[in-house]
């Protein structure tokens, strides 16, 4: 089974485009781009969890909420300095990720999906109910990271986080861990029989992806300046799933592109109201039905085939795809 992946050339080209974009765009689109990086972090890490490791989790946005709220509460109510508050939030996410990863070891497929859906709902409902601590639906104010009102520093921070997260996940997947994780997805029993410590690697994937989701939540909270429990509602999870699946659930870069394209499209089509999400639901079903590996890997394969034996040419054709 050949897994479609993006060439290095096309990835560097996309990164260059992302780097110069704020110089050309107005403040509104820089703001939109900075939010897109939040979704890109979530979609890519969810793609690793669900696509590579086959652990279909509905709790990913709940981890973003956990990170965001933890950092905001540590900085606000407990008076931690910001860097310490952020570290505490990340550490908490790692611990909770390990805990949930250990709890769901025996669950798979729809059982895992239902379990994580329930965990996510419980956490969201606690955020709604415990108004004394979280301020409930009124929203929790979060201190900013940078002085001034410009969104540009956040845009570059978000972009940096995406590059960092992609790099870390790719390095991890390029080692034996990636092989083990895929072996577990294909047949857990066979993997264990071949001597893979399935427990260890399943929990590891859960911890890594939960930490990235929490980092995304921390970034989002400090950037937007207010958090409500709605960050973890099911439609938000749906958005992340749609982004990852449309972009390519087995390609981390594909998921990032999916997140950016879906979010930018949904912002630029604002005047069409809910039709955008009708379209997104339809796209989700159609992509899953006809191009299971996602739209962008499929497009890239097409481009590569058209370019024929000259691999250098395929890199040149990428921008029109992304």
């Amino acid at each position: 089974m050949l897994r479609p992946s993006f060439t290095q050339g096309s990835q560097i080209l996309l990164l260059a485009v992302a780097l110069v974009l704020p110089l050309l765009a107005g403040p509104y689109w820089i703001h939109v781009g900075a939010i897109a990086w939040y979704y890109a972090l979530l979609a890519a890490s969810w793609a690793m969890l669900a696509g590579y490791a086959g652990q279909f989790s509905f709790a990913h946005v709940a981890f973003a909420a956990l990170g965001g709220y933890a950092s905001a509460l540590c900085a606000g109510q407990l008076g931690f300095p910001l860097p310490l508050a952020i570290m505490a939030a990340i550490l908490l996410a790692a611990v909770v990720g390990a805990l949930i990863g250990a709890l769901v070891l025996r669950l798979s497929g729809p059982y895992l999906a239902l379990f994580t859906l329930a965990i996510s709902e419980i956490f969201r409902l606690v955020l709604v109910a415990e108004e004394d601590v979280t301020r409930g639906m009124q929203g929790l104010p979060v201190p900013g990271l940078f002085p001034g009102r410009s969104d540009t520093p956040y845009y570059y921070l978000g972009l940096g986080l995406v590059v960092l997260a992609l790099g870390a996940m790719n390095v991890l997947l390029a080692t034996r861990v990636g092989l083990f994780v895929r072996a577990i997805r294909e047949d857990e029993g066979a993997a264990r029989a071949s001597g893979v410590d399935t427990t260890r690697y399943k929990i590891l994937v859960f911890v890594v992806t939960s930490v990235i989701a929490a980092a995304a939540g921390v970034y989002y909270g400090h950037f937007i300046g207010i958090l409500t429990p709605n960050i973890a509602i099911l439609p938000e999870m749906g958005l992340v799933i749609a982004m990852a699946v449309i972009g390519g659930i087995e390609s981390l870069t594909g998921a990032v592109i999916g997140a950016a394209v879906v979010f930018l499209l949904s912002e630029s089509l604002r005047s069409y109201g809910e039709w955008r999400f009708v379209l997104m639901g339809l796209a989700l079903i159609l992509v899953q039905r006809f191009a299971q590996n996602g739209l962008f890997p499929a497009l890239e394969q097409l481009g590569r085939r058209r370019a024929g034996p000259r691999p250098a040419a395929s890199a040149m054709e990428e921008p029109s795809d992304g």
Partner: peptide, 26 residues
Amino acid sequence: RVERKDEYAIIVTFGLTILLTNLGLV
């Protein structure tokens, strides 16, 4: 032709929710 059947089923039925809920709104 469909790999990962469990995930396929979850995604298409969840996609139906996104599609129908928003179609309902419109």
